[in-house]
């Protein structure tokens, strides 16, 4: 390695991140967004016969649920392809032959995938809010045609309350944090995995187990009705796997439960901690890997 090169170069990381984003865009990852659009717009039309409250509830349930599925899928599938593809194309050798440390290479890859996830989240959010706004306007104009005076004012206030609320923004931000965590976790697995299929399968397994981690932790710590030999297993699940249930807040956000600033900050902080630690472990695994 060239001794005059800086140990850590944000410019190099940024360049690799943009390159990763371009690569992923070429992989047609954004086709997922078409599916999301179909689901959101489709559910909006399908529920048009229902009562106003039901329409908005279902639209939010379907859209935020789909957003969570698609960002998680993009995070796992796109990240699992990154390193094997670079190895196959021999891009890794070209990059690492230059004065680029391995931890910078991984940071560039991770930042690239986070950019992709941010972009996907923004596009899905704009689409969801657009469809919600259109439905809201259509319901308001219907109310204006049928009601007047105090009744109309009350109805419009109820429609506004049922559609947009400040909660949606932190709810969507937590969806992004969860997907970023999954990307970081998948990157860590891919640093020691030999095939992208293995990485995907492992990440999906961790995804499911991660949602049960909180339950395992409770059983382990409460110990009520737990056999002595299951305790180490529960402890292993609680300590080795991430608590993904902590990031599943949208189910309750759509029901109208507010996310307070302190709760949002603490949840996001846990997500950032996971991302940081998984990145460091990725560097640890990748530092001595035979390429």
């Amino acid at each position: 390695m060239n001794r005059s090169a800086p140990i850590f170069s944000p410019a190099r990381i940024w360049a690799m991140a943009l390159n990763t984003l371009t690569e992923l865009t070429r992989l047609k990852i954004f086709y997922f967004l078409l599916l999301f659009a179909l689901l959101t717009i489709g559910s909006s039309f399908f529920t048009a016969d229902l009562k106003t409250d039901e329409q908005f509830q279902l639209l939010k349930d379907v859209s935020l649920g789909s957003m969570s599925i698609f960002t998680s899928l993009i995070a796992i599938l796109a990240t699992a392809l990154l390193l094997p593809k670079d190895l196959e194309d021999r891009t890794t050798f070209t990059i690492l032959a230059k004065p680029v440390p391995r931890y910078e290479y991984l940071a560039g890859k991770l930042l690239g995938i986070l950019l992709l996830l941010a972009l996907a989240t923004v596009v899905m959010t704009v689409l969801f809010l657009g469809v919600l706004w259109l439905r809201q306007q259509s319901v308001i104009s219907l109310s204006k045609a049928n009601l007047q005076g105090e009744d109309l004012a009350g109805e419009i206030a109820a429609i506004h309350a049922a559609t947009f609320n400040a909660n949606l923004a932190p709810g969507i931000a937590i969806i992004f944090v969860k997907s970023a965590l999954l990307a970081s976790l998948t990157l860590m697995i891919s640093t020691f995995a030999t095939t992208s299929i293995f990485t995907m399968m492992m990440s999906i397994a961790v995804y499911f187990i991660g949602h049960l981690q909180a339950t395992a932790r409770e059983y382990w710590l409460d110990s009520v009705g737990v056999q002595w030999w299951t305790k180490p297993v529960l402890a292993g699940v609680a300590l080795l796997f991430p608590d993904l249930q902590a990031f599943s807040l949208t189910d309750d956000v759509v029901a109208g439960i507010p996310i307070h600033a302190s709760l949002f900050t603490q949840t996001a902080a846990l997500g950032l901690l996971y991302i940081g630690v998984y990145y460091l472990l990725s560097c640890f695994f990748f530092s001595n890997r035979e390429l």
Binding site: L240, D243, D251, D252, I257, S262, L263, Q266, L270, L281
Partner: peptide
């Protein structure tokens, strides 16, 4: 071992966060 240490280090924080989320009506 590192993962287990990380798990042990974050355990109190996760318990606290879970309690906070339950109190706010989540999960």
């Amino acid at each position: 071992v590192l993962l287990l240490l990380f798990g042990a280090a974050r355990l109190p924080y996760e318990i606290h966060l879970q309690k906070l989320q339950h109190q706010a009506g989540f999960n």
